[in-house]
Each structure stands twice: as structure tokens, then as C-alpha cells.
């Protein structure tokens, strides 16, 4: 049953990321148990589950950000376009797999310098090309019209919603193939949330998105596929409308109907 459900998405469309039998440990504490999952290309995949279920940990293994925490270890395999991410260059991997965090975290620099950071740190882009790239990223993040007069003001002068879209623009500037979003709207008001959801829809044309969210409505609205995590295990993974309408497991049903979590 379970394997059949897990096998479906990649057949429908090619998998961008293929995770097989992933175990993850914080010291001696196991946080993920045998997670296997195929993230479909150019679609939005949502990960839901109660706090502490491992969905953020799982997301952070996809660009190996989990390694910034000391004494962690990982077993299993993650393939990005068929290539094992644990054997490729870390800097190159993170350039291909961008990340947006829970709280807006712009650098204490100007709006322009924030977006330009990734291009500068990866070398090469300068002058007019840099300015064009920054503008393009801000346009993709649907932020250009709002802040084109504030490019050289501090990023902290923007509203929370604008800061989060700035962080998305910053991630987009290096043209990532995958964008990981870790509860990107949890600190935002409903209007800013709607803008970011809208933005995610347009981004999936060129990008594969994986979003961790506490809001089941958000998962239902934006994603094509949803995975449900509980106690470090991926209990169910399916097309979003199937998972929400006809959940295959009792725990999933209990969670999405609000009986626990």
C-alpha cells in the first residue's frame, strides 16, 4: 500500500529530488526514520505534520543545511537530478537548492546588497549586469514596483511581508533549481501570505518548490503533492487533493481534521 502511494508521483512527472531510506540523528536521538520521497519537478510539494515531527529537519537535509548543527548524522540517499547530494560540492549544491526561512532574515544591508549578495559571493557578476540581475530577481518576487525607490535603503525599513519576499528575491538571484521554504508565512499577516502563495504559483514554472507549513489550508491551496510527517516518519505522501479528501491513514485524517496536533 505504502510503496504504491509513494511510487505514484514520479510516474506522473519526473522526480527532481529522489530521497531513499533517509535516517537522521541529532547526536544519538533519531529524528527521521526511513523517509523515502520523490519531489516532482516544477511543482509545489508541501510537507505537513505536528511540531517536532521532523518535517523541517527533512527539509534542511535537502540542501544539507542540517549539517550546520553539530553532532548530526545522516544515513540514506538523496539524489538531485540523479546525483547524490552528499558527494557533490556543498557550495555548488546550495546554489542549486535555495532556501527561505521561517522568519524574514535579511542581512543588515541595503535592499540592493541583500539581493546582490548571492551573485557577489558566487563571483563574476558586477556593474550593470548585477543591477539587471537584482531587478530581475525583485520582479520575479513581485516586489520591484513596491520598492524600486528604496533599493539603497536598509532592508529593515521594509514591512515583514516585504522582507520575506526580499528574502525570496535574494534566493532567486542565483537561479536555484529548487527552492526550499520553511514555514515562510508563519510570521506574516494574511495579505502578505496571499502574496507569497501567489508568488509560489508563478515560480513553479522555472523552479521546483518544497514548502514546510503548519497551515493545512495553505498546503491544500498551493501544493500539488503533500507529505504528512508524524514522529519522524513520513506516514503518507500523495497528490494533495487525494491526501486531503481521502487520506489513506487514520493519523492523517485525524491531523487534517484537527483532532490532534
Amino acid at each position: 500500500m505504502e510503496d504504491e502511494a509513494l511510487g505514484k508521483p514520479p510516474q506522473a512527472r519526473s522526480a527532481k529530488i529522489q530521497v531513499s531510506h533517509l535516517d537522521f540523528y541529532y547526536g544519538s536521538v533519531q529524528a527521521l526514520y526511513n523517509v523515502s520521497l520523490a519531489v516532482p519537478q516544477n511543482q509545489i510539494t508541501a510537507l505537513i505534520g505536528p511540531s517536532g515531527c521532523g518535517k523541517s529537519t527533512f527539509l534542511r537535509t535537502l540542501n544539507r543545511m542540517s549539517e550546520t548543527v553539530r553532532h548530526t548524522s545522516v544515513e540514506g540517499e538523496i539524489l538531485l537530478d540523479g546525483e547524490n547530494i552528499f558527494s557533490v560540492d556543498l557550495v555548488a549544491l546550495r546554489r542549486r537548492v535555495g532556501m527561505v526561512f521561517q522568519r524574514p532574515n535579511p542581512f543588515p544591508k541595503t535592499v540592493f546588497d541583500n539581493v546582490a549578495y548571492g551573485l557577489r559571493v558566487n563571483g563574476g557578476t558586477r556593474g550593470a549586469a548585477l543591477a539587471d540581475a537584482v531587478e530581475a530577481s525583485l520582479r520575479r518576487a513581485a516586489l520591484w514596483d513596491e520598492i524600486k525607490d528604496k533599493l539603497h535603503k536598509s532592508a529593515y525599513a521594509l514591512s515583514g511581508g516585504q522582507q520575506q519576499r526580499l528574502c525570496i528575491a535574494r534566493a532567486l538571484a542565483v537561479n536555484p533549481e529548487v527552492l526550499l521554504l520553511d514555514e515562510p508565512c508563519s510570521a506574516l499577516d494574511p495579505i502578505s501570505t496571499a502574496k507569497i502563495e501567489e508568488l509560489m504559483f508563478t515560480l513553479q514554472e522555472n523552479c521546483t518548490l518544497v514548502i514546510v507549513t503548519h497551515s493545512m489550508q495553505q498546503a491544500a491551496r498551493v501544493s500539488s503533492h503533500t507529505g504528512f510527517f508524524l514522529l519522524g516518519r513520513l506516514l503518507e505522501f500523495n497528490e494533495t487533493n487525494i491526501l486531503f479528501k481521502r487520506p489513506g491513514r487514520k493519523e492523517t485524517e485525524d491531523y487534517i481534521t484537527g483532532r490532534f496536533g
Binding site: 557550495v91 555548488a92 521561517q102 532574515n105 542581512f107 559571493v121 535574494r170 534566493a171
Partner: peptide, 13 residues
Amino acid sequence: PAEQREAALALGA
């Protein structure tokens, strides 16, 4: 905040 460091790392720093 760890997010500051991670923001830079996530961009390939």
C-alpha cells in the same frame, strides 16, 4: 540569530 548565518550559507557562501 542562526538564520543570518544560514541565509548566507544557503546562497552558496
